[in-house]
């Protein structure tokens, strides 16, 4: 395929993904906005008053970046895992597999869809948060860079999960038993400085900690982690997972009998 044809193939797949989740916005966009709105009310507004300040910020201000990041992570991941898995289960992945669309374009198309939904939901959650707090972004480039790379990373992870999943249950194992605990323990609601030295060290093995703190640094200017480390962790994980996903697609693992 020529460069122009490859671009058309990418655009087609991306637009298809964009339309897919936009058409069902009541299932894809609205629920995270409602859930995060409740988090802001209960944890931020009601319980937050009792907690007071964290790292020099009102508790609600402190948790906003983490909650936005949490919604970006879960939506980028779930968009790709559900879309790719259902394509696989219902057979319409064959439309792509028989076509000359290169595998890296299939990967990029789905990832772009996941990023679009992750960032779209992140934006909606950000707008909801503005009902409860003010936001003065300290480092816009870092904020955008971290959230964008995080959405890419979890979109690729979602695709790998979908490739391996053979049942709807298998599709949910990673989000429920790995992704959610890592996100909740990744400093969304607290600073790791509150933990004992041992658990602080353990927390450093949680990649989500780097993303949440990198994003928090971008918005509030405070972080438990050096933002450069956040970027480094993201880029390393993206490189590894991207290569692995391409390998799986080339081999046809989970796709071709």
């Amino acid at each position: 395929m020529s460069g122009q044809e490859i671009w058309v193939a990418f655009k087609t797949l991306f637009m298809k993904e964009l339309l897919r989740f936009s058409r069902i916005w009541i299932q894809t966009i609205l629920p995270p906005a409602v859930t995060m709105g409740l988090y802001f009310v209960i944890f931020g507004h009601l319980i937050g008053k009792a907690i007071g300040e964290m790292d020099g910020f009102q508790y609600i201000d402190y948790i906003v970046p983490g909650l936005i990041m949490m919604s970006v992570i879960t939506n980028a991941y779930s968009n790709v895992v559900s879309s790719f898995f259902s394509s696989k289960m219902h057979g319409h992945i064959q439309e792509l597999m028989i076509s000359p669309t290169p595998h890296f374009i299939i990967l990029l198309g789905y990832v772009a869809g996941g990023v679009a939904r992750g960032l779209g939901v992140g934006l909606v959650v950000t707008l909801v948060s503005l009902l409860f707090t003010e936001m003065n972004i300290q480092h816009p480039f870092i904020t955008v860079g971290i959230v964008f790379l995080t959405a890419i990373l979890f979109s690729i992870a979602g695709l790998i999960n979908a490739i391996y999943a053979k049942t709807f249950d298998a599709m949910n194992i990673i989000p429920v038993f790995i992704l959610t605990p890592l996100t909740y323990l990744g400093g969304v609601f607290y600073s790791v400085n509150l933990l004992s030295p041992f658990w602080q060290q353990v927390s450093l093995f949680n990649p989500v900690l780097y993303m949440v703190n990198g994003f928090r640094y971008g918005i509030l200017g405070v972080s438990d982690i050096n933002p450069l480390a956040s970027f480094a962790v993201l880029l390393i994980f993206i490189s590894i997972l991207f290569s692995f996903a391409i390998y799986l697609l080339n081999k046809g693992i989970g796709l071709r009998e």
Binding site: Q4, E5, V8, A9, T12, L19, E95, S99, P100
Partner: peptide
């Protein structure tokens, strides 16, 4: 129509 056009897109055929 989308099913048919999208398939064309995967072969690099503009919309």
């Amino acid at each position: 129509i989308e099913i048919v056009i999208n398939q064309g897109g995967y072969y690099g055929i503009p919309y």
